[in-house]
Amino acid sequence: MDNVTVATHPHTHETAVAAEHQHVALPQHRHHFETEEQQREAGTFGMWLFLLTEIMFFGGLFFAYLLYRNWYNPAFVVSSNQLSIPLGAANTAILIASGFFMALGVWAAEVRKKGLLLLFLVLTTVFGLAFLGIKAVEYHEKWEKHHIPGASFDVSQFINPQAYGLKEKPLAPDMAQKTQVFFFLYFAMTGMHAFHMIIGIVLLFWLMWRANRGEFSSGYVAPIENFGLYWHFVDIVWIFLFPLLYLINRHPV
């Protein structure tokens, strides 16, 4: 039945209702898509499939955190207290601002305002770089305190906190060693997150260069929109990293 229908109603542009098919002949509209909406949806769908693989990738790290936090809870509590809540909160606000400007950038491309699009892409990049700057300050502090897991890791702050003016309960030497697990996960998770941001910032410079040539201000929004999905996904990862690493261990049960 369906075969007959297809034979008499072939899947071509010619048989479609002309009025429904007056898409603007943009050079980026590929012929194998029936309509611009279909092309757009296919792109969005593909981008989301990529982001699902990213959910699984970061999901493994989140799972490792969940498991080890339960196993070595005392070590996770004291090492989490080493992180600075003001710096983490400021970085959260900065990253949210970066995502906000990215969203505005998509809007600017949709309403074909080239100048505004460029401005918002620049602001997205500036806030992204500010985030990485604060992250670098935090990493440097861990370096100075020998809180980077490995041969130079120093557990003395966790075994004898009073000597460092910390109001923590001292940990037994074996549990104190487990603070390395927290810092390993801290660097693995925030490091992979920062790596995604660095990739994103490289892509942002490429998009700014293309936006400056006017490529996205004549109705072709897909690259901006799909990059926006990536950038917001990276935001979401941080939205979960911030409470998990900085906040929830403050008050041990």
């Binding site: 109603h9 071509t12 429904e20 029936e34 309509t35 909406e37 279909q38 949806e41 809007w107």
Partner: peptide, 18 residues
């Protein structure tokens, strides 16, 4: 059966978020 996706388009109308 609408291979050209014209009679009953399933793709969402494009919506510009303000």
């Amino acid at each position: 059966h609408d291979p050209s996706n014209v009679v009953n388009p399933e793709h969402a109308d494009h919506h510009i978020v303000t």
